[in-house]
Design a protein around this nucleic acid. Sequence first.
DNA 1: ATAGGGTTAG
Length: 810
Amino acid sequence: MSATLSYNYCFYDSTVPRNNKNLTAKRAAKLKLDEDSVFVTNPRISKSLRRHRNPSKNLPASTGPPQDFSLARALRYYVDSGNMENAVCVFERMNHSDPYCWNVLIRGFTDNGLFREAIGFYRRMESEGVRADKFTPTIVIKACGGSLSFCEGQKVHGNLFKVGLDLDVCVCNSLISMYSKLGYIEYAVRVFEEMPIRDQVSWNSMISGYAAVGDGWNSLVCFLDMQALGMKPDRFSIISALNACSVECFVRCGMEVHCQVLKFGFELDVMVQTSLLDMYNKCGHMDYAERLFDKINPKNTVAWNAMIGGYVLNEQPCKSFACFRKMLEEDNVNPDAITMINLLPSCAQLGALLGGKSIHAYAIRKGFLPHVVLETALVDLYGSCGKPKMAERIFGEMAEKSVITWNAMIAANVQNELNMEAMELFQDLLNKPLKPDAITIASILPAYSEVAPLREGKQIHGYIIKSQHHSNTYVLNSTVFMYAKCGELGTAQEIFDRILFKDVSSWNTIIMAYAIHGFGRKSIELFYEMRDRGIKPNGSTFVSLLTSCSISGMVKQGWEFYHSMKRDYIIDPGIEHYGCILDLLGRTGNLEQAKNFIERMPLEPTARIWGSLLTASRNNKSIEFAELAAEHILSFEHDNTGCYVLLSNLYAEAGRWEDEERIKSLMKNKGLRKTIGCSLVETKGKPYRFINQDRSQIETNTIYNVLDIFSSKMGDAKYVHSVTKFRPQDLLKKRANSPENHSVRLAICFGLISMKIGNPVIVRKNTRMCKDCHSAAKKISEITNREIIVGDSKVFHHFRNGNCTCSDYW
DNA sequence: ATAGGGTTAG
């Protein structure tokens, strides 16, 4: 025994030269291969000749039972229990010349998701000159499929071709599966078409392969073709066909497959049941899914996960939590990483940071981390809950990242207005081997919608047109919104019209585009058009609609939509909906009611919720409520600079200078600085940026002259708001920071003198427009008889004939 | 003694 051990350890130690026996074997194998390759690579030798060769003639005869049964048993035991460390230990003590132990070990790695290691051991097997037997290729191909390494798979395929094993039915079936897992469906199709004999597994591999690449249609075609040849579907075919129905949202097809489930007697098969309920969930038929779920007995973790995921998918986050709680009450079921992954988006939907954090903690306690998908879901959660720093931390500490992880991080930055960070991240990604996908582009686009020049947005649009994503609905939806945010509502509408396959998000986007521009009636019109075209609205549709009603001051309609959402569409209001409702309440000026609404809300109020009350307080000049709201907002770790500024302005307007001073010094102590207000106007494709009191532009003199003319024309009205806003001593000084010289006004004047008459002047600014500038813009539109559009950080104000689309509430 | 196709996920 000890002799065997020391002998085997020689292999492990790379400093010890390998014995000649193996080298000879390797050379012999190579010679054999060369001989074969002459045969098979000769194009004149027909395909049929190759087909009729007996593939197994190249395989070594069985070496018989291994010398040590107990070691082989131990190896199998460790492999089956997932203890690969011990499995390797046992393996190292075995005689390596038998392919059997290699096969078991490589399969073990594959079954435990350690694909790289599986391929590594296969390479070692080759280099040690151990000849593969008929089981090895299928095992290795599976590992290649799992590791998503196309190169490795091609190499193996090539070798199999050389030894004539590429026509073996098992090998072909695993090749089909490997290629479709890698996304190369056309390779899978070729293998399928060229194989001499197809069995049920071959058909099943194609059905699942098409579904895996998102081609549910062809998957179902295969499902039917197979039956036309007289083969009955088995549980594998059924499960894959159901997957195809989910992919295409073909609920009627799904029901037909459901009938077959009953006909062929699979109705008690848990996997089939789970696939069925998943199909109904994904097609939006929660009622059927719930009924099926009730019948599953006993329910395993996967079934629970599918149901929790279904509620999340159908935007019923409260129900998904309820389902999770029921799952915890069960004795024999334990939540796993996928449970967490399914549950996390419901926290994001509810804006429930605390819930998300407790899931995070639970995942840590249960040892689910590290886990790429779970960590990505966490990045997404923290991003959605206004915690980009937390998202960043998880992202930074991740051992493994996928494109989806990058997408989540970019989105986290964009959602939290960290546009520069998002753009930098996008640049970083371009230098990585990972390829940006449609979702990356759609996520980065909003960063270009803020105060980046339209020219840059157009450049990205150009990149999209040239890329393979030019007709991707998801990408186009983001492009529509980008143009809307850049003030080009017409271009947005044009691109929307040209989207070939408009999904619910396309409609939500265009409704929101008109919403932020203050065209409430147009938004509602589009909502009805969408409904008439059979598109089912979701939670976001109502966010768009409610936003539209609040911006356009359509309070009554807003409430009607809110009730209809719950009653007619069974959608639980999320934190966003509550925010919109608060904006509606703010408009009516009933701050007491708004406060009560926040207290009665079933969700934890976020900074955005209190921000809504703060805005309402400002518009209704209530310092009492503003202080209440501010107190809450300042308790968040959120970037609340805007809140300080609003509050200090409010104190100033009321002449409460001491309080104003207090807030200013609070800001100073916290190291917060007022965001530098900046306005952007573009003419002839060139961007011009203005800050307050800007004198850096070439046209400065003209701009200030025009401004003076307007000031005199506006007459006394100009100081109505501002007179109380400045301390007496400040009024004596040269009014340095007077709203008269605010960046928006400079930009408007520049726009008026440099743009063609008839074109609207479009100005975008990074902070909210102040009251003074708002009334000035109204006047200017009246005096000049031109349309002025100012997009601030929240809404677009369309000034025409002395009026604004926001009806003076924003 | 060992192989190929299957459920839930960002």
